[in-house]
Design a protein around this nucleic acid. Structure first.
Lengths: 96, 96
DNA sequence: CATATAATTAGATAATTAGCTAAATACCGT
DNA sequence: ACGGTATTTAGCTAATTATCTAATTATATG
């Protein structure tokens, strides 16, 4: 569960904003990049880090590459955070 | 809610281990440092970053400085993560 | 008050990283 | 096959950061 890559990926505000944008569905690299004043290669760099951290996945459709949140990994992240907290979640609580 | 400082603080594995150690109650700087092969000043640096991120707080007792988790900020962290996920938590769910 | 202990602050250095431009790759339409 | 668009890869640089040693601050005790 690459915890280190995950937290390092989340440490950058640009990358957190990318994740936020992906909240309402997948978007192409270009559509995402539009919302930043950062060069395309720099954006690509961020996509790559998010991908390595398994926070997003990529799918090519024609000329575009579409990115989407990997929501299952966010569940893992919540688990890690709760573990840092030492929260002991009962089975009942986990499933509801 | 210093989100950026919080994630940056969590990006380092040494700091995450410190938080883990603090799970079972407050400990002095020295007691924590024992469990690492890192110089005391470096440890102090990490404590400072965790403190600025509001993830821990410090209390002096004689010669020792005792650190403890600031658990309320972890709750905020979970909220931020869930928000990145786009989870829409109802008021009822929040309060239980 | 002098010394010892706990921890910090100051200052330096090596490694990491976010950003850039230029070049390459992949796909589309004519 | 060629020209155009979308995106990535390569290579560089400036800024950040984790670590160190040396010096400082704060407290306790004989």
């Amino acid at each position: 569960m690459g915890t280190d890559l995950m937290f390092k990926a989340l440490a950058d505000p640009t990358r957190r904003k990318i994740l936020h944008i992906l909240n309402d569905g997948e978007k192409s690299a270009g559509q995402i990049a539009e919302q930043f004043s950062i060069s395309a290669p720099s954006m690509s760099h961020h996509f790559n880090i998010l991908k390595q951290a398994d926070l997003i996945y990529a799918r090519r459709d024609g000329q575009q590459i579409y990115y989407a949140l990997n929501t299952t990994v966010f569940q893992d992240l919540v688990t890690v955070v709760l573990d840092l907290l030492g929260a002991h979640i009962s089975e009942r609580e986990k499933s509801e």
